[in-house]
Design a binder for these strands. Structure first.
Lengths: 219, 219
DNA sequence: TAAAATGTTTAGATTTGTCTAACTTTTATT
DNA sequence: AATAAAAGTTAGACAAATCTAAACATTTTA
């Protein structure tokens, strides 16, 4: 299956939205891809033709098995390049998403296998997301929960679900990275903000916007 | 200056043909890019508009100073990726050209600077070609001469000018790589073939086709 | 349940890069 | 120098990916 860059981006975004359990709507996908609903409808017809998605007029979009497999291969490439950029070229986690968006479209099975070997076949990327293997299989993911939903006091950061430079820079500034251990001091119901503390540093408060995107596991 | 992938490929090919001292003709460029003369004429108008080439109807194509600078940056990216593929991912020299053709179009100054650092700021690529620096400057190139024109008996291979997998695989098979020391045993005028010997191995004959593409320096 | 609001699709246009076929200019040949 | 051949250009078409504006379908809400 030979996909264009645009097709690959659609497949990846559909996969992402499907994971979030929402039905994939024309508008939602347009928003995700920063394009217009009309463009999504056009592309949906093409991807249906290629049997990568199930699509009926007005009925939303879903990946077929084949589409899912394609998505996992693209995601594998993306996450391996992110590892390369952080581990080998010393980029910080907020810089790599954009670059990996471009590198991921270089299609060579051999390149990706060698890159993975070179990196020591990593299983998670710099944001804590799991890397599919060469067959497109995702290792069973540790049960993750977002910080705003966690109900224990002591937690460890396992991933970040929003990869925007803005959020990641904020987390850098606060000293929050993968593996950081947190203690929840207080939850404020009126705005769902949370007061947290890292080690012996002074406590600080983060908004629901932020805590929703921090994935944690209980300690 | 923001170039499309197609524009970058044109600029790179024009640079290559200009180096070969030939005037860059519509047909020659079409052949180099595996496209049609009509397409070249179309693109020439665009590149002239962007002031990257000098072009007048029927008068051939030449890079402007700005065009040359752009070309050198693209070539820098290409050659650095080739180094990465060979040095870090253990690809052989005949495999990397194609992959680098894709990787070179990821435009990020920072990425390329870091990649270069990571590789130890190499100055020649796996085919013996010099790598332009971050300012687009080419280190003064060692005077190179092709094997078919060399007139001394003992020579060292410094570069290969044709990067096709076919030629490079042939050279692999014969044990010819960068740095290989050769002795010319005989030159046959009727077909310009050359009999050469490596170390203590048996002599063998190569065609003019091949010897034209092996760059050497006298020992 | 009918009207309004929201969401989706279609139709037609645009941009980029390409092509073929016809035409023009330049170069080579007699 | 006239003409033939080669090289280069133009015109018009096409595919991919996008857009706007208008039409259509579904969902919400009053």
């Amino acid at each position: 299956m030979n996909l264009t860059v645009a097709e690959e981006n659609y497949i990846k975004s559909i996969y992402k939205l499907e994971e979030g359990a929402e039905a994939v709507t024309t508008t939602g996908l347009a928003y995700e891809l920063d394009t217009k609903p009309a463009s999504v409808t056009d592309m949906a017809k093409k991807l249906k033709e290629k049997k990568l998605i199930d699509y009926e007029k007005y009925q939303g979009i879903n990946l077929t098995a084949e589409g899912k497999k394609a998505a996992l291969h693209i995601i594998r490439r993306h996450r391996l390049w992110e590892c390369f950029l952080v581990d080998k070229l010393a980029f910080s986690w907020e810089e790599v998403h954009e670059l990996a968006e471009e590198l991921e479209h270089v299609r060579s099975e051999k390149l990706i296998i060698r890159l993975s070997d070179f990196l020591g076949n990593p299983t998670i990327d710099p944001h804590g997301d799991p890397i599919p293997d060469a067959q497109g299989k995702l290792g069973k993911q540790r049960a993750q929960i977002s910080l705003d939903q966690a109900r224990t006091k002591r937690l460890e950061v396992t991933a970040v679900s929003d990869k925007s430079a803005a959020l990641l820079e904020f987390l850098n500034a606060k000293g929050i990275r993968l593996g950081t251990q947190l203690e929840v001091i207080e939850r404020y119901e009126f705005d769902n903000s949370i007061e947290i503390k890292i080690r012996n540093q002074p406590a600080f408060t983060i908004s629901e916007q932020v805590s929703k995107n921090i994935m944690v596991r209980p300690l």
